[in-house]
């Protein structure tokens, strides 16, 4: 392993790190998700049984994490495209990252009830 290569690149580096980590996580979920959907070719019961685990409170929290990863990866991906193709992109990359973070926070607050609402009702009663 190379030693002493911590590159203190601030916003540019950390958004790059977060883009990688979220990308790898999403890819692994996608693999599992295609496998679970393939159960519709086995039987309705097999599919419904696996989908039932997606409706448990613990997995609902993981879904919220998945939504967080996808939203960041999508918004930061649009920022990367702007940096690459928009003439003012490289100069405004930091401002665009903070814009991404703000939009991400707003959407995450908006996703709280739709994604975690049924889990909360199950845990604490309606």
């Amino acid at each position: 392993m190379p030693a002493g290569t911590l590159y203190r690149g601030r916003e540019g580096m950390w958004s790059w790190v977060a883009h990688r980590v979220t990308g790898v996580l999403i890819f692994f979920f996608l693999f599992v998700h295609v496998l679970d959907t393939a159960l519709v070719r086995v039987s309705p019961e097999a599919y419904d049984k696996v989908v039932a685990t997606y409706k448990t409170p613990i997995v609902a929290c993981l879904e919220y994490g998945l939504v967080a990863a996808i939203l960041f990866h999508a918004l930061n991906g649009l920022r990367i495209i702007a940096v690459d193709f928009w003439s003012k992109g490289p100069r405004l990359q930091k401002q665009m990252l903070w814009t991404v973070v703000v939009i991400w926070l707003v959407l995450m607050v908006g996703a709280l009830y739709p994604v975690l609402g049924h889990a909360a009702r199950e845990l604490f009663g309606s």
Binding site: T37, V40, P44, Y47, D48, V51, Y54, K55, A60, E63, P114, V115, G117, H118
Partner: peptide, 10 residues
């Protein structure tokens, strides 16, 4: 949300 998903929905 996720609670409606099932074979019939697909």
């Amino acid at each position: 949300g996720v609670s409606k998903i099932g074979f019939a929905f697909v």
